[in-house]
Amino acid sequence: MKIGFDRICKKAHQRGAKIICLIHDLSSFRNKSLTPDEEIKRLNATDVLLTHNHMMRQWLSEHGCKVKMIDYEIMDYIHGESGAPHEPVDRNYSLYYVGNVSFKTHPYLRKLAEIMPDRDIYLYGTHPELEEIAKYPNLHYMGIVSDRQIIKSHMGDFGLSWYGESLDSGEGRIGEYMAYNNPHKVSLYLRCNSPVIVWSGAGRAEFINKEKVGITIDSLTTLDDRLKEVDDKEYRLLTDNARKINAKLKSGYYLDKALSQAIDHLNKS
């Protein structure tokens, strides 16, 4: 959040405006460029905050945020493409991951390949360590592919949203932050009509469970056994629900809903 934000809010209020602030990232979490007190002071200069999820809202409240907060649950993904129907080749469900595929940044990717040698994992993204990836027959680097193309066609039956260093939880600076943040990656997977795999301790887990669009687990060490339990009926339920959320993400449904609630609050206050 830029220096001067609270002064801009003050000027807007002097002119009779109301301010709705949509949080994309929290600087005091992501890159530590602000202290929590500095960031909360600026956020308190607004009238309504649109927060990612209940965990982010709770953290802000505990650190002194006083304004009205509304969860927008998941980031919309407004894009012209529609996710192609996807049918798994067999019950040995495969995974795909989109993002930074470096083992240095996400060492869990290497560990996951080691503990699930018979399950294919497709990697889409930047910073590949090709010589290292080649050591694992079940890891497949697919290149840097546009989101448009991934939505139209991708390899993998479940989208993986996991961050940090450990198979067990969101450890490390990025992993800890993702306990409160809703990654855009989850929305991309759902736009692909794919069920999502997330850490059960993450803020986004509540949405995944409520909408039945994926699997939440405490540790990736249990993922292989959990996937073996997924039968055709459960996989069809997850993909059918993902397809419904896909349509909402494409239309901007979640931001529209949160903004409507914010405006209603302002009109009543």
Rank of each mutant, 00 (worst) to 15 (best):
L259H: 04
E176G: 08
Q14W: 11
Y124I: 02
T51H: 06
S187R: 06
N100H: 11
L190T: 13
I20G: 05
K212Q: 14
T216Y: 02
K152D: 08
K228L: 09
L227K: 06
H86D: 11
I3H: 06
I245S: 03
W199T: 04
V230D: 00
S169C: 12
R15G: 10
I208V: 15
T51F: 10
P195G: 10
V89D: 10
N267P: 00
D231R: 04
G170N: 08
A258Q: 06
M69R: 14
W162E: 01
L43C: 07
K2E: 13
G83H: 06
P195N: 08
H265Q: 08
M1D: 07
E39A: 03
M142Y: 00
S82D: 10
S161Q: 08
E62F: 07
L22Y: 09
C192F: 03
I217H: 11
T221K: 15
S200E: 15
L49C: 01
A134N: 11
N92Y: 05
N138V: 02
G252N: 08
M69C: 10
N44T: 09
I40T: 00
D256T: 14
R7V: 02
Q149G: 00
D231V: 04
H13F: 11
Y254V: 02
P36Y: 02
K228Y: 02
G159F: 05
W162Q: 03
E176Q: 14
R30M: 12
I20E: 08
P117D: 05
E87A: 13
D37F: 12
A262Q: 02
N181K: 07
K111W: 05
V213P: 07
S153M: 06
N182P: 07
V186F: 00
Y97I: 04
S153Q: 12
S94V: 10
R42D: 13
C21M: 13
